[in-house]
Design a protein around this nucleic acid. Sequence first.
DNA 1: CGACTATTCAAAGACTTCTTTGAATAGTCC
DNA 2: GGACTATTCAAAGAAGTCTTTGAATAGTCG
Lengths: 223, 223
Amino acid sequence: MGDRVTKDALFDGFAEVAKAMANGRRAELVDVLVQGERHVEELADEISQSVANTSFHLRALAATGLVTTRRDGTRIYYRLTSDRVGELWAALRDVAAAHHSELDTLAAAYLGDRSRLEEIGRAELADRIVAGDVIVLDVRPRPEFAAGHIAGARSIPIEQLAESLKAVPRDIEIVAYCRGPYCVMADDAVRLLRRRGRAARRLEGGYPEWRRAQLPVESEAAP
Amino acid sequence: MGDRVTKDALFDGFAEVAKAMANGRRAELVDVLVQGERHVEELADEISQSVANTSFHLRALAATGLVTTRRDGTRIYYRLTSDRVGELWAALRDVAAAHHSELDTLAAAYLGDRSRLEEIGRAELADRIVAGDVIVLDVRPRPEFAAGHIAGARSIPIEQLAESLKAVPRDIEIVAYCRGPYCVMADDAVRLLRRRGRAARRLEGGYPEWRRAQLPVESEAAP
DNA sequence: CGACTATTCAAAGACTTCTTTGAATAGTCC
DNA sequence: GGACTATTCAAAGAAGTCTTTGAATAGTCG
């Protein structure tokens, strides 16, 4: 024990897990799967790749145990094997943001100007939900809302927001949220709402960060 | 903002950080650098690679900002850019241990049989150090001890332990520690000590875990 | 049981990564 | 300033990764 060959093999083993995340498309898959399980076709659509290529990447994630599958009818649903994988993803994102010099530029290019989008902290939102003087809007796709959402939130996927606006009461502040700090759906929602004269802010982070902070969540009846 | 091309570029950016860790030799480098800064030749020696190849991998880590350098005389010292990088490494190891099916086998092959090596928890050791009825032995290489160690620990690198044994008092329990859960130096120390009739245990984890738990540390005067 | 289809697999080509070797560079330190 | 040397760079070959295409598989569900 303790020799070079087995040491290298062990660290190659750790590196395999890093390799599983070491591809932009697989990173996007993990970022979606943190929201909850999805089937292959949905995932392919989310990352704008062919089903074959998406399946290839999902197999790569499964090979190191980061994701597991379950079958429901003719569909196969992939999910993260545990919350730890989501935490690893968050740690990776944080290190990238803190240390990778190009990340500012890349994030700015994707997210655009956020200076006019006020954020509300999680603790403050939790208080305001209890007080009842705020509407919480989940603007992620339906399946993600179904898999789990902030307790009391209402689902209006971003594409439907413009047409569903009438159904949202006026004269009460709206807080929109989505997948996390690098997700634009809540940004787009806040911009749209403000253009229509509503008071709207963006939640700091997204659903996974809320859940990780042990704040109240709910989900649609599990099978 | 929010289009496919820039989204892919952003996630490619996150993936670059994962790529930096996605190689066994670079993983070993990070594992050593978590202990403190070291120069290129030392690092090459630690991972049993040529200086050129070690330099190549260090450049790869530096390219995503995971490590930084400082010059001292003719030497260039590499160090992790922040503790966050060490935390990412720990998270990666934990996910690998929890989910990567081959890791058990790899770890067992490298570490050997640990069933007879009793571990002592960090909290318990902290108490016993205060009580003064234990000797704490840092068996890592000298430069790592110099960069930081458990407060009150004594440095006897593992290669020198056999010959330095006389200098260690009898009739008091010895706790050995090293780099972390996948480091064999403390294991070897405990085995040696027990063969010589000493009461010895291994600290759970290693120095980085101790430090991360905010327990007392000290280091040799910084420049 | 048989048609259907969601997912996986295989092959191939373009591209990237890793290691080795030997040379270049850029600092130090007398 | 010049010798010295720690580190980096460059080139090249072997090996691995990613995407596309088209076919195979293995389940479901009537």
